[in-house]
């Protein structure tokens, strides 16, 4: 594949043709905060946390292909303010009870909130309060914790060759739909499906395996999310 360089945070970095800004930045050891992106899936562009500045204009790093004419900034006060605000919005859209959540400590939404120093969400809460669906023997879906990143939707299609999940409804009533009206238990979702474990929050969780890692040893207890990408460069 053809290589080229573009300017990332003031220095020249290399990228491969076809790479998104986010992928190229990852390769260069520059972490761009992201939530809906997953390296094994096509990008969705849902969360907008990876918003960056391309030649002064805001662009979405996971869906925008890098190009040689680009001057990209990823870590400005303005951008981090946008990101912090979006994350705070996601907290009031759902009901995120971190203290009792299986995903706490390994949750990407929580980790981003830590990274941006959120103490508590202050926007008015939107109280959607959807019921939990625990009808599947091995997996449950709790839409209170869903950030509509669409990872399960994409993983089911792209990785599992199924279409267990989809998006339905519009606006604030958008929700993850299932391909069965009789609950998750009646879908083709399998315990070993990529879609079953790809959720960044505790919305889709494997049953009977929660709370196994002690506090202090979980993914984001000590080091902020993205440290693994930034380390690569050193």
């Amino acid at each position: 594949m053809k290589k080229f360089t573009f300017v990332l945070n003031g220095r020249d970095v290399e990228a491969l043709e076809g790479q998104s800004i986010l992928e190229a930045a990852d390769g260069a050891g520059v972490y761009i905060p992201r939530l809906c992106y997953h390296k094994d899936l096509l990008p969705g562009g849902h969360c907008r946390v990876c918003s960056v500045k391309v030649n002064g204009k805001v662009a979405n790093a996971c869906t925008m292909p890098a190009a040689d004419w680009m001057v990209v900034d990823t870590d400005t006060e303005e951008l981090n303010e946008y990101r912090r605000l979006i994350i705070e919005l996601l907290f009031v859209e759902g009901n995120h009870f971190c203290p009792i959540c299986e995903k706490s400590g390994d949750c990407e939404l929580q980790a981003l909130a830590y990274k941006f120093g959120m103490t508590a969400p202050l926007w008015p809460t939107l109280s959607k309060n959807p019921p939990v669906d625990a009808s599947h023997p091995d997996v449950f879906i709790d839409r209170n914790r869903c950030v509509l990143c669409g990872r399960c939707v994409r993983a089911s299609r792209e990785r599992d060759g199924k279409s267990v999940f989809g998006l339905e409804g519009r606006g604030i009533r958008t929700r993850i739909a299932l391909d069965s009206l009789d609950g998750l238990g009646m879908t083709a979702l399998g315990r070993n499906d990529a879609a079953a474990t790809i959720c960044p929050t505790g919305s889709l969780v494997l049953k009977r395996v929660g709370f196994t890692t002690p506090y202090g040893a979980r993914a984001y207890d000590k080091a902020p999310i993205g440290s693994e990408i930034e380390k690569k460069e050193e």
Binding site: P99, A113, Y114, D221, P224
Partner: peptide, 10 residues
């Protein structure tokens, strides 16, 4: 001022 390791929700 709380550093990274001191901001936790659990």
């Amino acid at each position: 001022k709380l550093g990274y390791e001191l901001i936790k929700y659990d």
